[in-house]
Design a protein around this nucleic acid. Structure first.
Length: 704
RNA sequence: GGCCCCGUCGUCUAGCCUGGUCCAGGACACCACCCUUUCACGGUGGUGACAUGGGUUCGAAUCCCAUCGGGGUCACCA
């Protein structure tokens, strides 16, 4: 077991239930690997490396006659895509290209360069669900779901990010059979209301039971080296020494000549035999000369059998000789993926459609290495409502817009003045506003300053806003998949949980068209899930969330409301669509009694109108309030009703006159004309505070 | 731009493979009314889509073609 168990350390997240145990720098570990192999100099080469924006174009076209060759049950679209009837002739099908004994293995392979994105979560969910939905062969129980960390990009990967992604997966309830070990606290798990019991307080997700680890690619470099050598020896891979400048010049020339650029294989011709290439590589290695290794692409057509889209073909000669090992000694994505999927026994690859174009390369590599080809399924992409890609940049955009709106309204606000008031670096802030950087820190600072919400795009954000994992799981499952079932009332079934997915998920029902992420519907789902919770469970979840996301508020709450929790939940729960809403609902109770502000319009309307009618009623009600016993929502409600029936003139239309008391009382104790039911609000405050507030209101009115 | 994928209410979708039961069903959003001490919830009802044009067929949302529209991709990133 080479992977260390991962603990928790994200700032402000200490009580989510993921606790730190041993850590070691991911980057440091990977670098050590490279250095042991005498490649320190190549690390430095990375600093000079530039990225290329242009590259080969691949001619991929939709399969025709053989489109119906696919795993059972046959997909509809593929058949439709086939204009040639005889194409439906039976052909050998293979659900699992590995040996018939091998279990289905799916994998989620995130790059640890940020939080878990909503799209990534869906990919993970589908992979998980597909594995779990495999029939139990009697031995092991369905398929296996694996997580592998693709950290071959030394500049961008971080262990912190890897851990964050695993935590978010765990929080969603998507647990991996094979992969890095993550220790999670049971305290925060649903249904574990108490800390007592014999169960240990923590458990570990992830293992290396098969065993096919390590699960960090940076730790698998020796494995890649083996297969790299195999390719060099067989003449299918070769070193290339061109500088980026040289390649860029060729690329520009091709563009100028209106031709599609493709790497010209110059380096392949330069050293014509595997032996010559090996010598050249050895020489370069001893002299610290940087080079990449390229794959000699096949000159035959490549077919990708996709379970969602049908067959996709790339014409012979359209693939160019892409890089498989970078100058820093690490494999590129393409190579690492292919080697790992084979050596880790992955049978089904399900990923977003943005990867479709990578697949021919992977298939070509598999053939060259003599590997099996897994079953592929590319799922539709998820977009913002405006059609743009969901990205963390959306947060910067939202913050930028807030700044510009503010500057439009108040010319006194300048980047400089703003930097002063939020305590940010003026240059950074000016750049941010100008769109020259998308700093998430600045975005968050500005959002706080202007009190605007930032759009949630990552699981972490939704968690922070008080969404429930079961709502998110349900909602994202529906983005690109549908059970196609009806409920007993005849309506479409769309509320379901992980267990349902593990039973009913199928690739056949994955859609083909891209989906827009509808926040309003997610919010509605979350509200529904929140309302389904028992009061106790709701309380537990709210407290856990609050400790996690708003520790200071949580402390204040637990101090003030210890005795009044039932009253608190009674008034807040029905009004909450996310856990954060609870804070809004109880805000009036959180402010100190002597600092409560009164909304002037509400005061006018409910207290002052009709010659201070409301104030008069309040004065008469004050003694009642002081004597209500017990001071509970029900008793308060009864007291109010009794008072209203006895003391207040009946409405000519015979309608309830309770409002004549309730509204003034509401304004007096909450400062606003809008609040939860007055009796609940009173109970929540408790008798002493309610009376203080009532008298304070009456005195303030008298003073005028 | 080359190549590829996709196209049912504003949004997510059911229906499409196996054409008629679909003047297209559900959910979210929206509108109206009801309930109501405000807000929220809840209840009832409503507006709202087969991208367009050709074909095949007695009959097309469903099959075929074209057009248009949207998206993906074209790195020593994954």
């Amino acid at each position: 077991m080479q992977d260390l168990p991962l603990g928790h350390r994200r700032r402000g997240r200490s009580s989510v239930g993921l606790r730190a145990i041993g850590l070691r720098g991911l980057r440091g570990r990977a670098r050590a690997e490279a250095e042991c192999r005498g490649q320190r100099h190549r690390q430095q080469t990375l600093l000079r490396t530039q990225t290329h924006r242009r590259g080969p174009s691949n001619a991929i076209r939709r399969a025709r006659p053989s489109a119906s060759v696919r795993a059972q049950p046959t997909r509809t679209r593929a058949a439709r895509a086939s204009p040639v009837p005889q194409a439906r002739q039976p052909q050998p099908l293979r659900l699992c290209p590995m040996s018939s004994q091998a279990p289905v293995v799916t994998r989620f392979a995130p790059s640890p360069t940020g939080h878990l994105h909503i799209g990534g979560a869906r990919s993970a969910l589908f992979c998980w669900a597909f594995a779990k939905a495999q029939p139990d062969g009697g031995g092991g129980g369905g398929g296996r779901f694996m997580v592998r960390i693709e950290d071959t990009d030394q500049a961008r990967s971080s262990e912190e990010s890897a851990r964050g992604i695993l935590e978010d997966l765990a929080w969603l309830g998507i647990e991996w059979d094979d992969g890095p070990m993550l220790e999670v606290s049971r305290l925060s798990e649903p249904g574990s209301a108490s800390t007592s019991g014999d169960r240990p307080a923590v458990r570990v997700i992830g293992a290396n039971a098969r065993p096919v680890g390590p699960y960090f690619q940076a730790q698998r470099v020796p494995i890649y080296a083996r297969f790299l050598n195999q390719l060099v020896d067989s003449g299918r891979a070769y070193p290339a020494f061109e500088t980026n400048e040289e390649l860029e010049a060729k690329r520009k020339a091709a563009v100028a000549a209106k031709q599609t650029y493709r790497y010209d294989r110059a380096a392949y011709q330069q050293f014509p035999t595997p032996a010559a290439r090996r010598d050249r590589m050895k020489q370069a290695d001893t002299h610290g000369e940087p080079y990449v290794i390229r794959f000699h692409a096949p000159s035959e057509e490549i077919v990708v059998r996709d379970q969602v889209l049908g067959d996709v073909r790339i014409a012979a000669g359209e693939l160019d000789d892409f890089v498989i090992r970078k100058a820093d000694g690490f494999p590129t994505y393409h190579f690492a993926v292919v080697v790992d999927d084979e050596t880790m026994g992955v049978t089904h690859v399900m990923r977003a459609q943005e990867h479709l174009y990578n697949t021919p390369r992977h298939v070509a590599l598999q053939k060259a290495l003599g590997f099996r080809t897994p079953v592929y399924a590319h799922m539709p992409l998820i977009f913002n409502p405006d059609g743009s890609k969901m990205s963390k940049r959306d947060k910067a955009k939202a913050a930028r817009k807030a700044v510009k709106d503010a500057m439009g309204k108040d010319p006194a606000i300048t980047p400089r003045s703003l930097a002063m008031s939020v305590g940010a670096d003026a240059k950074n802030l000016a750049d941010f506003i100008a769109g020259e950087n998308d700093s998430l820190d600045i975005a968050a600072t500005l959002a706080r300053h202007f009190n605007i919400p930032l759009p949630e795009v990552e699981i972490y954000d939704f968690r922070n806003s008080g969404y429930l994992p079961e709502a998110i799981v349900n909602f994202i499952a529906l983005l690109g998949w549908n059970p196609g079932m009806k409920q007993s009332d005849g309506k479409d079934l769309e509320k379901f949980d992980l267990a349902f997915l593990a039973r009913h998920f199928s690739i056949e029902r994955i859609g083909r068209s891209n989906a827009k992420f509808d926040r309003a519907k997610l919010l509605s789902f979350n509200g529904d899930y929140l309302q389904q919770l028992s009061d106790d469970e709701f309380t537990r979840r709210f407290i856990a969330w609050c400790r996690d996301s708003q520790p200071a508020t949580a402390a204040a709450l637990e101090r003030q409301f210890a005795a009044n929790l039932p009253a608190l939940i009674r008034m807040a729960k029905p009004r909450a669509k996310v856990l954060r809403d609870v804070l809004k609902v109880i805000e009036f109770a959180l402010v100190p009694d002597d600092q409560l502000a009164f909304d002037s319009a509400a005061v006018q309307k409910s207290l002052r109108a009709n010659n201070d009618e409301g104030l008069g009623i309040l004065k008469r009600f004050a003694p009642v309030l002081e004597s209500v016993e017990p001071f509970t929502p029900d008793a308060l409600h009864t007291a109010m009703e009794t008072f209203a029936a006895r003391e207040l003139p009946a409405d000519p239309a015979g309608k309830s006159n309770l409002g004549k008391l309730a509204q003034p009382l509401r304004v007096a104790i909450t400062g606003s004309g809008v609040s939860p039911p007055v009796h609940d609000s009173l109970a929540c405050l408790g008798r002493a505070r309610a009376i203080v507030r009532l008298h304070r209101c009456l005195e303030a009115a008298q003073a005028r």
